[in-house]
Computed example of a mutant assay.
Amino acid sequence: MAPGGRSAAPGVRLVQKVSSTRAFAKIAPHVVPAMDRTVHRLTRGKVLLSAKMLPGVILTVRGAKSGLPRRTPLACMPEESGSWILVGSNFGRPGHPAWTGNLIAHPDADVNWRGTDIPVRARLLSGDERAAAWGAALTFWPPYATYQSRVEREIRLFRLERRTD
């Protein structure tokens, strides 16, 4: 299945296959976020290149140690309730991505979703709630299974819900 529950088009299947490779895991963390940040800034938040394949947000959260705002482009899984699931896959590389530690330390954050800034609160998922979200994430983007198979750590999943405060 492609994102959104539809059958994957040949182009999507190719991207899924490529994104499951170890070469992609080495290169993508350096290229994709930088490209996304640049295009997002140049288009004043209207375009996120990676979102052409998967829905995406720009997460702004305070650094766990520095307290400074950290902006990270991320793929996300939008939920019907208006929340988002973020998957801390780190492209199947060892170690949790830094943004996950930042969210644990500072769960109040902001996302830019389709050009709109939205205040959110993050919750690290566990137990049955995590299992259900992981199953949905695997249906949404099957390469997550490959990423998990490469690492000993459990990939962190977060649900971001809109804040009204």
Score class of each variant (00 low, 15 high):
residue 34 A to D: 06
residue 24 F to D: 11
residue 33 P to T: 00
residue 46 K to V: 12
residue 21 T to F: 04
residue 43 T to N: 08
residue 50 S to T: 10
residue 18 V to A: 10
residue 48 L to C: 01
residue 72 T to M: 01
residue 41 R to A: 12
residue 59 L to R: 04
residue 17 K to S: 15
residue 12 V to R: 11
residue 56 G to P: 02
residue 21 T to S: 14
residue 38 T to W: 07
residue 48 L to F: 00
residue 13 R to H: 12
residue 74 L to F: 06
residue 54 L to R: 07
residue 65 K to P: 05
residue 70 R to P: 00
residue 16 Q to R: 14
residue 71 R to I: 09
residue 9 A to C: 14
residue 82 G to Q: 04
residue 58 I to D: 00
residue 64 A to M: 06
residue 18 V to I: 13
residue 37 R to G: 08
residue 15 V to N: 08
residue 76 C to Y: 05
residue 64 A to N: 07
residue 15 V to S: 13
residue 16 Q to I: 12
residue 35 M to K: 07
residue 41 R to C: 10
residue 48 L to R: 01
residue 50 S to F: 02
residue 35 M to N: 11
residue 9 A to T: 15
residue 79 E to D: 08
residue 38 T to F: 10
residue 57 V to F: 00
residue 77 M to V: 06
residue 21 T to E: 09
residue 83 S to T: 07
residue 29 P to G: 01
residue 63 G to C: 03
residue 79 E to P: 10
residue 54 L to Q: 10
residue 71 R to H: 02
residue 52 K to I: 14
residue 57 V to A: 01
residue 81 S to D: 12
residue 57 V to T: 02
residue 68 L to V: 13
residue 80 E to M: 12
residue 79 E to A: 10
residue 9 A to F: 11
residue 13 R to W: 11
residue 55 P to A: 05
residue 77 M to S: 02
residue 21 T to I: 11
residue 27 I to P: 07
residue 46 K to I: 12
residue 38 T to K: 10
residue 63 G to Y: 00
residue 52 K to G: 15
residue 22 R to K: 13
residue 10 P to F: 09
residue 42 L to H: 08
residue 68 L to H: 12
residue 81 S to N: 13
residue 46 K to T: 13
residue 76 C to P: 05
residue 23 A to G: 15
residue 62 R to N: 12
residue 69 P to T: 04
residue 39 V to H: 06
residue 12 V to F: 07
residue 35 M to P: 09
residue 75 A to S: 07
residue 12 V to Y: 12
residue 47 V to W: 10
residue 78 P to M: 03
residue 52 K to P: 13
residue 24 F to I: 12
residue 34 A to N: 04
residue 59 L to C: 02
residue 64 A to V: 06
residue 47 V to A: 11
residue 73 P to H: 03
residue 61 V to A: 04
residue 28 A to F: 06
residue 44 R to N: 12
residue 71 R to M: 05
residue 80 E to L: 14
residue 38 T to D: 08
residue 22 R to E: 15
residue 30 H to E: 08
residue 61 V to D: 03
residue 63 G to M: 05
residue 65 K to C: 09
residue 18 V to D: 12
residue 50 S to W: 00
residue 45 G to H: 06
residue 55 P to F: 04
residue 34 A to R: 00
residue 55 P to G: 07
residue 44 R to D: 10
residue 58 I to L: 03
residue 52 K to Q: 15
residue 13 R to V: 10
residue 82 G to R: 05
residue 10 P to H: 09
residue 40 H to N: 15
residue 20 S to A: 14
residue 72 T to G: 01
residue 28 A to L: 03
residue 21 T to C: 09
residue 48 L to Q: 05
residue 75 A to F: 03
residue 76 C to R: 05
residue 83 S to L: 08
residue 14 L to V: 10
residue 57 V to E: 00
residue 42 L to T: 11
residue 12 V to M: 14
residue 39 V to K: 01
residue 37 R to P: 04
residue 64 A to R: 02
residue 16 Q to K: 14
residue 35 M to V: 13
residue 73 P to I: 00
residue 39 V to R: 03
residue 23 A to E: 13
residue 40 H to T: 06
residue 19 S to D: 08
residue 75 A to K: 05
residue 82 G to H: 02
residue 31 V to H: 00
residue 56 G to A: 02
residue 14 L to S: 12
residue 25 A to W: 05
residue 18 V to W: 09
residue 67 G to P: 04
residue 17 K to R: 15
residue 38 T to S: 09
residue 59 L to E: 04
residue 74 L to I: 03
residue 34 A to F: 00
residue 74 L to M: 03
